[in-house]
């Protein structure tokens, strides 16, 4: 099947945008309403039978979820990535979409994963339940507005950890060199000069170590 033939099949779907990225990759953008039609069409008419993955991307600025269905054809040796956008919903009214389990059985795994990590409910998916995070009752953790670090700071008192051996090191002038909170407040500015100084010191240490190679051998 050449480029023209596959385009002809894809163009049967309304409002589709096709991008041939390279020989084995086609990107298509469709409306959320037409996506199941598209998948059914390429599965039935163009032998795209292998669902490689379903990915969810949280575009919080647009208040949308992007769902990407990667489908591979063993015969055409080509991968179609079908992109669609759905409404992000809210805490009270979570996002919903249609399951493609009737077309691709592995959708069971991916849809359950997205349900768990992003809170998107797939209507018609056989197992909309917890799988990996069975003991988690908070918001879906992969959402961009869930701050994992803030959660850790609030929940775990890890900064209180100060065993004897660490205390001893600190007394001798060692211990934690840069406190994590200092790194965060400093932002992304990396002081290159200290890196270089550290490298120099390391090189000197290696040199000194080389002199002691005699007894090692």
């Amino acid at each position: 099947m050449n480029k023209v033939q596959i385009d002809e099949i894809l163009n049967k779907v309304n409002g589709i945008k096709i991008t041939h990225k390279r020989k084995t990759r086609i990107r298509v953008d469709v409306d959320a309403d037409s996506l199941p039609t598209l998948l059914e069409l390429i599965k039935g008419r163009a032998s795209y039978i292998h669902l490689s993955a379903i990915t969810c991307v949280d575009w919080i600025a647009d208040n949308q979820f992007e769902l990407v269905y990667h489908v591979w054809s063993y015969e055409e040796k080509c991968l179609i990535s079908a992109h669609t956008r759905i409404d992000r919903g809210s805490e009270k009214n979570p996002a919903k979409y249609i399951s493609v389990y009737d077309l691709f059985k592995p959708a069971d795994f991916f849809e359950r994963d997205i349900f768990e990590m992003y809170g998107v409910t797939f209507i018609g998916s056989p197992r909309m339940e917890k799988f990996i995070l069975t003991e988690w009752n908070g918001v879906p953790p992969m959402l961009k507005d869930f701050d994992a670090e803030a959660y850790v700071q609030e929940t775990f008192k890890w900064t209180d950890y100060n065993p004897d051996w660490l205390q001893e090191l600190t007394d001798q002038g060692g211990g934690i060199a840069v406190k994590p909170e200092d790194i965060r407040t400093a932002g992304n500015t990396h002081n290159m000069s200290t890196h270089r100084e550290r490298d120099k010191a390391k090189a000197a240490a290696v040199k000194a170590n080389d002199k002691m190679q005699g007894w090692k051998q």
Binding site: F131, I132, L133, T134, P141, M142, A148, E149
Partner: peptide, 16 residues
């Protein structure tokens, strides 16, 4: 199947 014993949130970690 019951997974989750090795969940370290790699995908979330990588975003940060």
């Amino acid at each position: 199947a019951d997974a989750g014993y090795l969940h370290r949130g790699f995908e979330k970690l990588m975003e940060g």
